[in-house]
């Protein structure tokens, strides 16, 4: 049988040299970024958000040209109906959450009712980040402060402002992969383990009655809702039940978010 492998004499050193240069360049870039207080990061993020905005404009331009009108009108109608359903779901979940919040937690935790804030656009993809982050189009110039809460139009906390630049800010999702947040479900507290995309998993004692649609509240965020119960997995051989938490809105469809200062 002919051998499957071949032996190659080491090729010229140019490839290796390029690797060394690239490695050194990256080290220099991170060192400069640290020395300049994140200026290189800011430039990269601004370029990234500009490209994202450009791609959105191109996408709209192509689909608004009329070439894909028939297909597009159906797709648009479909998307519109889906969005309406999602809005309805979110409003219903939001109502339950707010009702429970008002009745129990706000009085107990004495949380301020003040919801002063600003609405800002999302200026990056919501799914491309390996760290569960996204960019919003407001920064220091707009009075953004690190630690501010990022809410969906329905009032669910979706993230926390992690870094503030001049014109953009980086938001870390509450339920980014491997992130942990303490939550309350039906008055019972437990840590939620983030799974990305607005989803989380919570292990709770099986004795606690939890139903799909129950609001999930985060005391750390002023008793605001962070999601609803999407599914409950309960097994008689296990003392715990697994609660899957979801956002009642598709996180990728968010175009605007509301920013409120953290309490």
């Amino acid at each position: 049988m002919a051998t499957q492998f071949t032996f190659n004499a080491p090729r010229g050193r140019s490839g290796r040299r390029r690797l060394i240069y690239a490695t050194l360049l990256v080290i220099v870039v991170f060192a400069l970024d640290a020395l300049t207080g994140g200026n290189i990061r800011e430039l990269t993020q601004r370029a990234g958000s500009s490209l994202w905005k450009l791609s959105e404009n191109v996408r709209r331009g192509v689909f608004d040209s009329g070439y894909f009108r028939t297909h597009r009108s159906l797709a648009e109608k479909n998307a519109q109906l889906r969005a309406e359903i999602e809005r309805g779901n979110e409003n219903a979940a939001s109502y339950i959450a707010l009702k429970q919040e008002n009745e129990i937690l706000r009085s107990l935790l004495q949380v301020s009712q003040d919801e002063n804030g600003i609405t800002v656009p999302v200026v990056s993809s919501m799914s491309a980040s390996p760290y569960g982050t996204f960019l919003i189009g407001a920064g220091r110039a707009n009075g953004m402060v690190q630690g501010s809460l990022v809410l969906t139009p329905g009032g669910f906390v979706v993230g926390v402002v992690s870094e503030v630049r001049e014109k953009t800010s980086l938001v870390r999702e509450v339920f980014a992969g491997a992130a942990q947040a303490d939550v309350l479900i039906n008055g019972a507290a437990a840590p939620a383990e983030g799974r990305g995309g607005g989803n989380a998993r919570v292990a709770m004692p099986r004795g606690i009655a939890i139903l799909e649609g129950d609001p999930v509240i985060a005391p750390l965020f002023g008793g605001r809702p962070v999601g609803v119960v999407g599914k409950v997995d309960s097994d008689s051989s296990n003392a715990d039940q697994t609660v899957y938490v979801v956002l009642p809105i598709n996180i990728s469809s968010l175009r605007f978010v509301h920013i409120v200062p953290a309490n």
Binding site: R18, T44, Q45, S129, Y131, S162
Partner: peptide, 20 residues
Amino acid sequence: ASWEAILLGCMTDLIWQPSS
């Protein structure tokens, strides 16, 4: 022997990595 892979990793971190 891809220098692009290193730059790709660097770009991903510069855009998305939070300070935490």
